[in-house]
Design a protein around this nucleic acid. Structure first.
Lengths: 241, 241
DNA sequence: GCAATAGTGTCTTTTAGACAATATTCA
DNA sequence: TGAATATTGTCTAAAAGACACTATTGC
């Protein structure tokens, strides 16, 4: 019970990054192999402690994005995911972590960053299935992050964050299919996407590809909120909980 | 730059509560009049520092819910809203706040709690319009919380959290109208709500009211995810405003 | 009957969902 | 021409949106 000279307890603050991208038509997640205790040799999300007392939390996230993932000046989607701070989640003491969700277009190669040595892309399905043991409560964080991305694809333009500056409608469809794990009808997809004013806008003189008919190029439009939403079909979903 | 014996900085952790309810057919928010510096005599969200180093964050939120709002053992909806921790947001030092969104059915009176003396319900519209000056960055927190509630009404069963254990369809409609600030067509609303299997289920022998035909009673069903979602649309003609 | 609120039915327009055919490029 | 991918069109079923009427209670 707080008394006269009670002082509030102080906690250590970390940021953790759920970085998603598309590679080989699959949703993948960036993981670091830990070199130090605790959880040495286990995989973990990129992240780390607040650098100094005056550093902003999102600023720390961007710093770690550069240091640990080699994604420095790159423009990518970054949003706060939530706080994970249950006592006992970190053996080093009371550590509270702010998780961020980052989404990036296909990256060059195995991430050629500074400290990004032990970083590698893992299929999200395998991670969610528990085939890749993660440190701390990072499995829960990943699960929340992926679910956030899946949900936001429905009623926001988040899908374009997985694409390069310009992209084709087929590429956009691949994003939806990979993130949701479903197959969509291209004809209905074309219709739906193009009817949503401001979702994507024509870009460039319209051409590209290697074999087959060239596709028209688009870029992300100004609209962030999709109305009506894209509907996640052919998935169990419906039932409660 | 971190050196050999670098130690991560520690921050103070608080929880802040955006507590929403329906009173007089309007969406209202619980605010506390601060009795101490900083921001003495300004309004602020209920909340406070982590009680001790071993206290869970959500546990702290529930404790403050009881202490500052007098909403102790009450069953209510509580979800994490986000973290607000920019340097300089609190003159007392580096304070990072975890905001929670709480939604409660109509409460007895002006909240007869323990420390809930200076607590009062304010119309959300007035607060968002800036007519009630708030301490810290609480205006932003309130704005985010209300927007979260508005959005979740669309594709989740959150609306039932504003209702008592049993409720009528008209009452549920009033929730949507108050939170969204729109008018809805009762006939389409009845149809829509009842078609969504598991959203609400019949409860009680079916009766109630004071004047007019008694209404059937329902309670919240098992389904949390609404599919298809409720769509936020205004009534074309109906009563104006 | 009258006042007041609860609940249902129908029509029209829009949208989703399923399906097949045409267009454009390169070899 | 053929292979490969892009793009458009049509039909049907379902849902949204607009509208008016019937039902049940207390007086």
């Amino acid at each position: 019970m707080p008394t006269d000279e009670w002082e509030p307890p102080a906690v250590l603050l970390t940021v953790d990054l759920v970085i998603l991208t598309l590679r080989d038509a699959a949703l993948r997640l960036l993981l670091i192999e830990r070199g130090v205790e605790p959880f040495r040799d286990a995989f973990a999300l990129p992240g780390g402690f607040l650098g100094h007392l005056g550093e902003g939390i999102e600023a720390a996230a961007r710093r770690e994005l550069a240091e640990e993932a080699g994604l420095g000046d790159r423009s990518l989607h970054l949003e706060q995911l939530g706080v994970y701070g249950e006592p006992g989640r970190d053996p080093r003491g009371r550590v509270v972590s702010v998780a961020y969700l980052a989404i990036s277009p296909r990256l060059p190669d195995p991430v050629a960053g500074t400290d990004a040595a032990g970083a590698s892309w893992h299929p999200v399905d395998a991670v969610l299935a528990g085939e890749v043991p993660l440190a701390f409560d990072h499995h829960r964080v990943v699960s929340d992050g992926v679910e956030r991305a899946r949900a936001k694809l429905e009623h926001s333009a988040l899908a374009t964050a997985f694409c390069a500056d310009t992209f084709t409608i087929s590429e956009l469809q691949e994003v939806y299919e990979a993130v949701w794990g479903t197959r969509l009808d291209p004809r209905n997809f074309y219709r739906k996407v193009q009817r949503t004013e401001g979702f994507i806008v024509a870009a460039g003189p319209t051409r590209k590809t290697e074999t087959g008919r060239p596709a028209r190029l688009f870029r992300a439009g100004p609209r962030q909120v999709l109305h009506p939403p894209m509907v996640r079909t052919a998935l169990t979903k419906g039932t409660d909980e």
